[in-house]
Amino acid sequence: MTVAVITRLADDVPRRTLILLGILLAALLVAPWIVNDYLLTVLIVTLYSAYTGQAWNIMMGFAGQLSLGNALYAGLGAYLAAALFTDFGIGPWIGFLASIPVAAACGAIIGFLAFRFGVAGVYFAILTIAFGEFARIGFDHLTIVNASAGLFLPVAQYAHNDLWRLRGDPTMFYYVILAATVLAFVLCRLLLRSRIGYFWLAIREDEQAARAVGIDTFRYKMYAVVISAAATSFAGVFYAFFYNNLFPEQVFNIGRSIEMILGPVIGGVGTLFGPILGAFVLNGLAETLNATMSAVGLDLPGAKEVFYGLCLLFVILALPEGVWPPLARRLGFDKGKR
């Protein structure tokens, strides 16, 4: 059964693509033994954005629905799991299970409001931001989770790693987010090559033509939103237990949503590898900037962000498809692709 799934996954993937993925995975697996603590944290943050980007890509890259508020689902997952942990001692994995229906229901409400009338796609985008902001302000006043004072998790002793309760050292967190990223990648590939994936792509390409071949576009758009929301909520659970503190102002900030989008857009919307590559490009860029700024002793608040914005501008002007599609063509990874 497992073997069958693996063969199906590798089905008509060019050999060199498989080799590249293998090398990449091997490098990521041994990374904690090679890199220092700081770089390990950078890798965790990078994989986190690869994971959230992959989840966002389901909505936008596959089904063509632009969500600008995915921080909402991460935030709900984070708060729910953290509250269950601090108040009732319930572990994060159960917390994640609990956050799935909550995030999915939230996504469903937004999708229902936006898709019901089949109005312009912009509505959906703006509604997603509006709900994110609604949650930010709402949680800022929600006293059962300490409102704007923030929710804190008891900080772990690094004596031993407790995977079940997600208490431990950065290496453990690294492997958890790596596993999640790999799983998300595999799940996305399976989805994309199944009936639902074909329907999503059809809707993304031309919704009216999709309806003409019998696709219930409302239903499949809802599936995309719900799956993406549920997947994103896990990122929130991870965030809560990794950082151990939650402030509505940070967790639900629209900046978090934008960060989730940048990776896949830079890497290549709708591609499986784009979100991962984009996350590495962006975080690599940010770290290089940090290092350069401190090397030249420049401490000007905002300067880094301006440069970051200019880099973004450059990428979208020069590479409209993102980095991965042209790169894949040049390296020949698209050969034999169906």
Partner: peptide, 10 residues
């Protein structure tokens, strides 16, 4: 109105 970015087969 075919699905432009999809392959003919898809």
């Amino acid at each position: 109105r075919p699905f432009p970015a999809l392959s003919v087969e898809d």
